[in-house]
Amino acid sequence: MDIGIVMNTMRDPAGVPAHPVLFQALMVFTWVFHIAFVHLTLGAAGLSIYAFHKRAENPNWERLSIAMTKVAKVGVSLLIVLGVAPLLFTQVIYDPQWYASNVLSGRWTIAFIFTLIVAYCAWFVFYYANHEGAKRHIGLYAWVALAGC
């Protein structure tokens, strides 16, 4: 069985409604924004946690932690929105690879959704608790959230 033939057969027979290069360009263009916010969010979350644990040393760490918590909160919701477009365009031109890999790793795909919900909720708990003089144990929520993301 020739893998090239199989991949060709698995392409949707309906074809693509415009030149594939257009979708490829849109995919890369929209992906850039998605991944930029992914980096921003993970970086902000990491920095926020680091600063949270250092806040006893200097009040500036506390201010930084609180600010970065907000950045990560808004960042997650934007990275999700911005992730939808590349998800769409990927599936238009790379359907054989995308669907085969998703189905074969189906439990990871589905687990990802629920992990993200739990992580996002944990981050919100941290966001509401992370103000001046906050208790140390709330950092746990932040760690759960970061692990989830």
Partner: peptide
């Protein structure tokens, strides 16, 4: 999250169905 979540779920449930819709 559940919006793309539905998308992921239908992808693993009915890849050709979602492919047909997307195309």
């Amino acid at each position: 999250i559940t919006g793309p979540g539905i998308w992921y779920a239908i992808t693993v449930a009915s890849p050709r169905g979602v492919g047909g819709l997307i195309h």
